[in-house]
Simulated scan of single mutants.
Amino acid sequence: MQRDGIFAGDNPFQIARDWLAEAETGELNDPNAVALATVDPSGLPNVRMVLLKDITDTGFWFYTNYESAKGQEIAASGKAAMVLHWKSLRRQVRIRGDVVKEDGPEADAYFASRSLKSRLGAWASHQSQPLESRTKLMAEVAKVTSRKGANPARPPFWGGFRIVPVEIEFWADGAFRLHDRFVWRRETHENAWEIQRLSP
């Protein structure tokens, strides 16, 4: 099966990194924005936008409040899916797989790299929980600011998740809606990838 041009390569993570790097030069806003899909305990899907923070050869990384709806749904199922879509490139990458919680040094380092206001906001927000008013939220931020100071540590309820994919699909727009699609699949993380071209 011939895969050349933007689809060439033996490492799907590197292809994804290359596409993201290309998007960073042309996509106007948040080229690392991804739609993250999870399911609730009844099996009802949930999807929301989050920011992808890294693509390594071990998976796709993002950070959130573990007590949020997505955090709880991931904890319950251990699985998630995401899609990166770049309108400027007319391309997308779809990822499905198991999720690993990352609350060690990488999470500490990323939290420390965020702006002070974002770090304080992470402490103040009970993400996904009912909120009486914005005034109440800002009051909580003020309280946290006085308690935590100028260098708050990462909250124990906030950190990283890494999707370890068993499926990665690369999609590029084609003339007359005859798109190019290649999917990389493996049964487990230890298995070798199998690659197929899919009909548009």
Rank of each mutant, 00 (worst) to 15 (best):
A8Y: 06
G9Q: 11
N11S: 13
N11C: 13
F13I: 02
D18N: 14
W19Y: 03
L20N: 04
L20R: 08
A21C: 02
A23P: 06
A23R: 01
N29L: 14
N29H: 12
P31R: 04
N32S: 13
A35D: 05
G43C: 08
G43Y: 11
P45F: 01
V50T: 13
V50P: 00
L52R: 07
K53R: 15
D54Y: 00
D54M: 02
I55E: 03
T56I: 05
T58E: 13
T58S: 11
F60Q: 02
F60E: 06
N65V: 06
Y66F: 15
G71T: 09
G71W: 09
S77V: 01
S77G: 11
V83D: 03
L84G: 08
W86M: 07
R90N: 08
R94V: 05
R94H: 07
R96V: 06
D98V: 01
S113D: 02
R114D: 00
R114V: 06
R119S: 08
R119V: 06
A124V: 08
H126N: 14
Q127I: 13
P130I: 08
E132A: 15
S133A: 13
A139E: 15
V141M: 11
V144S: 02
S146N: 11
A150L: 12
A153Y: 01
P155H: 04
R162D: 02
E169V: 00
H179V: 10
R186P: 13
R186G: 10
T188S: 15
T188Y: 13
A192W: 00
W193A: 03
L198G: 09
